[in-house]
Each structure stands twice: as structure tokens, then as C-alpha cells.
Amino acid sequence: MALGKEQEKIDQIIVKWNEVYFQWKQGSKDRIKRIREIISIAEFPEDSVVAGPYKEPKPTLNDDIFNEVFVKITEYESLNQSQIEKNTRLEVLEFKRKHISDDKEKIEKQLMKLSTNWSNYPIPHENQSILESKIDLFEIELEEINSNSQYQNNILNQLKISRRSQNDMLIDIKNEIVEKKKKMSILGMI
């Protein structure tokens, strides 16, 4: 009878082991799935089975392997999110720049009409100081438009440079992850 109880305890331990192993395996598969979102070649290794009367599966992945990979994945996702935000800001700035450029072209066309057809306009009845003030205001407005356009172009160029730099960083991180995956494959860890 004592042997039957011992067999029952062993069977319960095996059932618990199988439950724990199943949870571990499912968690590992979920982690591999997350990794696969970035590295398409990531796979869960096949189970290795220990020879014996119960043919227990033996875990082949150590959870510590995932920590380093997830640090890089988090960095990748953070950089990717930053890039998306910068792209959005670039689009907004590009729209503003185009709007300012369109306004500038309209004003320049109006000024060209005024300067080429000046003889067709009636002589103004305002005194000279008022006319000079209006001219000064138009010149100031034109300078502000030019200055704003130049400022927007500078910001746009800076964001484009920053975006290129982040793209390079994303590629480097992805290459590191692929390299580590290859090393882990070579070492038989995956």
C-alpha cells in the first residue's frame, strides 16, 4: 500500500510538473511571438524529450535569454515610437511651410503686379508719410514671411537629419538582435 501512495505522489508531481511546464512553454511562446513581430525568423525550439518511463519534456529555453532581447526590443519600440512622433511633427511642419510658401507667392505676385503696372494706378491722395508707412509695413511683413519660411526650412532639415539618425540606430539594434539570435542558435540555446 505504501508503494501505491508513493506512486500516486509521483503521479501528482508529474501532473504538477506538466502544468508548470505547459505554463512556462506558453509564456515562452508568447515571448517568441513578441520577438517575431520585429525579427520574423524567431521560432520556439522543438521540445526535447528525456528518455525514461514518463518521457518528460525538458525545457530548452532559459528565461534569462529573453531579458537581454526584450531590453533591445524595448529600445527598438521606443525609437520607433519616437520616429513616428517626429514624422508626425515633420508632416505638420511641412504643411505649415507649404502654407507659408503659398502665402508668400501670393504676396510676391501682388507686389509684382504693383511694380510692373505702377503707371496705371491713380496718384494717391494720401500724404507721403502715410504711403511710406504702408511701404514699411509691407516690407516688414515680407521680411517676417521670409524669416518664418527660413525658420521652418531649418527645423524641417534638422528633423530630417534626426530621423535619418534614428533609422540608423533602429537598424543597428535590429542587427544586434539578429546577431544574438544567431549566436544563441549556434550555442544550441534556441
Rank of each mutant, 00 (worst) to 15 (best):
R36H: 10
E43S: 04
D11V: 01
K9H: 05
N167Q: 13
K29A: 04
F138D: 07
K55S: 11
M184C: 09
N127T: 02
P122M: 00
E68L: 13
I135S: 11
R34V: 05
N148K: 05
E108G: 00
E46W: 06
K33E: 11
E46Y: 07
N154T: 13
I73C: 03
P57C: 05
V20E: 14
L142P: 04
L159T: 02
F66P: 00
S78Y: 15
Q12D: 09
I35Y: 08
L90G: 01
Q7S: 07
S162A: 11
P57A: 02
Q158A: 14
Q166G: 07
S162E: 13
D168I: 05
D168V: 01
I32A: 02
L131G: 00
L61Y: 02
I186F: 06
D103M: 07
Q150R: 09
T74I: 07
N62H: 10
N80C: 01
N153C: 04
Q83D: 02
N62E: 12
L3G: 05
E94R: 10
E43M: 00
P124M: 06
Q83C: 03
N87S: 08
E143P: 01
L61M: 07
E91L: 12
D47V: 00
P124D: 13
R89A: 06
T60Q: 13
I10R: 05
V50A: 14
P122G: 01
V92P: 00
Y54M: 05
L114F: 12
K134M: 08
E77T: 03
M1Q: 06
M1V: 10
S147F: 12
I190P: 01
E108L: 12
R163E: 12
N175R: 03
F66C: 01
L79A: 04
M112E: 15
N154P: 00
D168K: 06
Q150F: 13
R163L: 14
I155K: 10
F95L: 14
K134E: 03
I190F: 15
I123Q: 10
F44P: 00
I161W: 03
I84E: 14
D102Q: 07
S133D: 09
R163T: 13
I161S: 05
V71I: 14
E141V: 06
E75F: 13
F95T: 11
Y151C: 05
I145L: 15
K181H: 14
E91V: 08
A42G: 01
V178L: 08
K86I: 15
I35C: 03
V50G: 09
H99Y: 15
T88N: 14
E108C: 02
G4E: 09
K9Q: 08
E139Q: 10
S149K: 09
Q12I: 01
E141N: 12
D102M: 05
Q81N: 10
S115I: 11
I73Y: 06
Y54Q: 09
I14G: 04
E68G: 12
N120L: 14
D64Y: 08
L131C: 03
I65S: 10
Y121R: 07
